[in-house]
Simulated assay, not measured.
Amino acid sequence: MERLTVVLAGPDTEYLEMVLRFVRSSEFASALTIRAFSSKDNLATYLNTQSIPHVVLVEPDFLTADVSWTTLDNVILLVSSQYSKESERYPSLFKYQPIHQLLTKAKAMYLDKHEVVVEQALGNGHTKVVSFYSIVGGCGKTTAAINMSRQLSLGGNKVLYLSLETVSSSPAWFGTVPNQELAEILYYITSGNKQAASKLEQYRKTDSESGLHYLEPLTHLKEIEDVSREDVRGLLDIIVSSHSYDYVVIDCDSNFHARTIAALEYAHEVMLLLLDDIQCMYKTKAALTALRSENAELYQALHRKIHMVVNKYTGSMANRPEPDLFDIQGYLPYIPQWKNVTQGQQLSASREFNHQAMFLTSLFSQAK
């Protein structure tokens, strides 16, 4: 997609400079050319003599500038209150929201209005999709998936975390309130709407500490149960073909639902978590044995990319999986301090766990 030219206009020079500094040091540096004006005269000169910009973010007071506003169909008002009365002529955005969120919404509004389709080139091979899975719940799958995602992001990679669990705990990690944005993205996909990619860009969130991107999970049980194999593949196609990420980390449900199978099939790597527990080992063996018997094609596909990882490892094991199924390839340590946590952020504070989570990425290049 072409680089967008954005004009930002308003009397607050400190705000303008803050936005410019953010753009220069963020991912938007390669996506946007931004021009800022604190003078109505300078704004008028630019808009009346230069090529029409893709987006004009302007505070309402600057609409009095001597500009042929009727020739601009991409004007967005920057309002200082979330309760400002909506303009009949121009859409608006709240000025004091996080800058990343503001620019993402402005870009998405442009894409929607002009029906610009994000280019797709499936199978580009640049994005590695990693699915975290366990046969038995309670194996610490989400803890491992989010910690690896954060560490990859802190290491300079562009990472998206996606939860496909029936009931996801990721909002507790990120301190957010669940919403229906993912449901809207999936609706766009199933209805064949070409703007699904722009909705994805609009609704993704950013973890302020690590820079990790994530989507809020579905919250209604009926909606998540209705997500099909095709829905998941369509969503992942759009994410991968956006060329925006080095890694997509999927937090799968502990079942063989169609959406889970789709995530396992699509992934380049599957991290299968288990515990040194007789019930966990038995159920894992029983499920994989049944899969090998009933769906040999899927079993063989998984066999080539599964990495079996023992979580809550204490230094020795009383139980081991059958060697003819999968070998243990990694270990994540037991962290006693995690027995009593009150915030999801506390589960990212162990240097030992994070070091081992990053070590698991060395398994990705090991051929089977």
Rank of each mutant, 00 (worst) to 15 (best):
E2C: 10
L20V: 14
F22Q: 10
E27H: 12
S30D: 14
F37P: 01
D41N: 12
T45Q: 14
L47T: 10
S51V: 08
V55R: 06
E86P: 03
R89F: 08
S92F: 08
F94E: 08
Y96F: 13
Y96E: 03
H100E: 15
H114Q: 07
H114C: 06
I135V: 15
V136G: 02
M148Q: 10
S149I: 01
S153F: 02
L154S: 11
G155P: 09
F174D: 01
G175T: 07
P178K: 10
K194H: 12
Q195L: 15
A197G: 13
L200F: 14
T206K: 15
E216P: 01
E223C: 06
I224K: 02
V227H: 09
V227G: 08
R229M: 06
V232W: 01
G234F: 00
G234T: 08
S244E: 14
V249M: 14
D253C: 10
L264N: 02
E265V: 09
D276C: 05
I278P: 11
A286N: 09
A290D: 12
A296R: 14
H303C: 04
V309P: 03
N311G: 05
K312W: 05
Y313P: 01
P321G: 00
D324E: 13
L325M: 02
F326N: 11
G330P: 10
W338N: 04
V341C: 08
T342M: 12
R351M: 12
F353E: 01
M358Q: 12
L360Y: 04
L360P: 08
L360N: 01
T361N: 10
F364E: 04
Q366Y: 13
A367Y: 12
K368F: 10
